[in-house]
């Protein structure tokens, strides 16, 4: 439930809410869905990126970084002895 609505809300927040709120929400959603930061970053750059406005798709890169970090943490937790 949290994953489905959270993922949908994260995408919608990229449209309707300021980017700091969306970034924080995507960061929180990474605990449940590691791909959400990358997805939100990619979606935000798809909507707002212009070549003359920024030199690189910052949101996508940041989302990819957070997603990679989330996968790394999850992987360590799942293979550890303290898996919850």
């Amino acid at each position: 439930m949290i994953r489905s609505f959270g993922t949908l809300f994260a995408l919608l927040s990229a449209i309707f809410f300021p980017w700091p709120f969306t970034a924080c929400f995507a960061l929180g959603m990474a605990l449940y869905e590691p791909l959400v930061p990358l997805t939100v970053g990619l979606f935000s750059d798809t909507l707002y990126y212009t070549s003359h406005g920024a030199q690189m798709p910052f949101f996508t890169l940041a989302g990819a970084f957070v997603t990679a970090a989330a996968f790394f943490v999850r992987n360590r937790l799942k293979t550890g002895i303290i898996e919850g």
């Binding site: 994953r3 489905s4 993922t7 949908l8 994260a10 995408l11 869905e33 590691p34 791909l35 959400v36 990358l38 997805t39 939100v40 990619l42 979606f43 798809t46 909507l47 996968f71 999850r74 992987n75 799942k78 293979t79």
Partner: peptide
């Protein structure tokens, strides 16, 4: 036990990522 390909992580996140990629290709 693969974190990248587990059924849990491939559900909503993968679906959303696929949607975002579709929007990107559309643009």
């Amino acid at each position: 036990r693969n974190a990248l390909l587990s059924s849990r992580s491939a559900s909503w996140g993968a679906l959303a990522l696929t949607t975002a990629l579709g929007v990107l290709f559309l643009r």
